[in-house]
Amino acid sequence: MAAPRIFTPQLPLCGQFSLDGPEVRHAATVLRLGVGDSLMAFDGKGGEALCQILQVDKRSLELLIEERIDTDRELGFQLRAFVSVPKGDRQRVLVDGLSQLGVSHLHPLLTKRSVVKPASSERLQRYAVESAKQCGRNVVMSVGASQTAESLSNTTASNDAPLPSARLVAHPYGESLRVKDWLDGQSQNQETLLREIDFAIGPEGGFTEAEIEQLVNSGWQAVSLGKSILRTEMAALHLAGLIAATFEHR
C-alpha cells in the first residue's frame, strides 16, 4: 500500500524537520499515523520525500527524511486554463479535475455573460493542494487572479523560450475548427513542440460574438468540442484531457 501523502511548503533536502498546521491534524486524526509510520511529503514545487515520523503531538510532527525522490509527473509543457467558473460545489469539481489532468495554471474568467462569482483564490488553491495529494502530482496547480476576455485579447504569448505557443477558445458556433482536427494537425507535425498551451472556456451562456471576434483577431483559435453543449466544468475537463493525452509524451 502506498504511503499517505502530506503537503508541506518547505521540504529540506535531508535530515529532520517539523510540520505544523492543518496537515498535522489530518495525519494524526484522520490518517491515524503515529511514531514509526512512513509518509510521503511534497512541497508543491516538485519536491517529494519518503519520511518517517519521529514524534507526534497535537500541533506538530517531527519527521526524518529517509529518501528524497522528486518524481516528475508533469506534462512537459505549460497548460493554462482560463475558465468562467460554475456554481457552488462544481467549482471544486473543476479545480480537482484540472489538477488531475496536469493543468499548470487556472485563472477564473469573467465575461459579459458571467453570473457566478468565483470562490476566493485561497479556497480554490486549497482545492488544488487536496487534489495534488490525491493524484500524486508534486507540483500544485497554481490558481491565479481572475482575467477578463478583454485581458486575454490583449495578452501575447510569452517570449522567454524558443518554442511556440497555442491558444484555444471553446466556441460551439460559427466557423470553429473541430478540436480533433486541430489536435491531429499538431500531433502530425513532429517538428513543432509547444512550450505552452492556453485554453479559454466561457460561461454556460457562452462568449458573446464580440468577445469571440476579439479573441480570434488577437490570435486565439476557436474550436468546437462536439455536437453537444457541455457544462462549463465538463467543457474544461474535456478539452484539458484531450490536450494532455495528445502532447504529454512528446
Rank of each mutant, 00 (worst) to 15 (best):
L19E: 11
D89A: 13
E23P: 05
V129F: 12
E211L: 13
R90Q: 11
G88S: 15
A157Q: 07
F7R: 05
I65Y: 11
Q188E: 11
C14V: 10
E233M: 09
E67T: 09
R231I: 07
A49I: 04
G174V: 07
L79M: 04
E48V: 01
L152R: 04
F7L: 11
V95L: 04
I6W: 12
S146Q: 08
I243M: 08
S38Q: 15
G15L: 12
S176M: 08
T156D: 12
L239Q: 14
L177C: 09
G241Q: 05
K180L: 09
D181L: 08
E233L: 06
G219M: 09
L31Y: 12
G205P: 06
G185Y: 02
I53C: 04
R25W: 12
M40N: 13
T192F: 02
A235V: 03
V179M: 02
T156S: 15
K45W: 00
C51Y: 04
A166P: 00
L110T: 04
D70E: 02
V179Q: 02
L61P: 05
Q214P: 11
L61R: 04
A128Y: 06
I6D: 10
V30L: 09
P118D: 10
Q125D: 00
Q214C: 15
D20F: 11
A128H: 05
D43N: 14
A166L: 14
L152E: 05
I6Q: 13
G144C: 06
S165P: 00
E66Q: 15
E196R: 06
V129Q: 13
L109A: 03
F199S: 02
H238W: 14
T246Y: 01
A157L: 06
K112G: 00
R231C: 12
L230V: 03
E130W: 00
E211Y: 14
I243H: 08
F17W: 09
F17K: 03
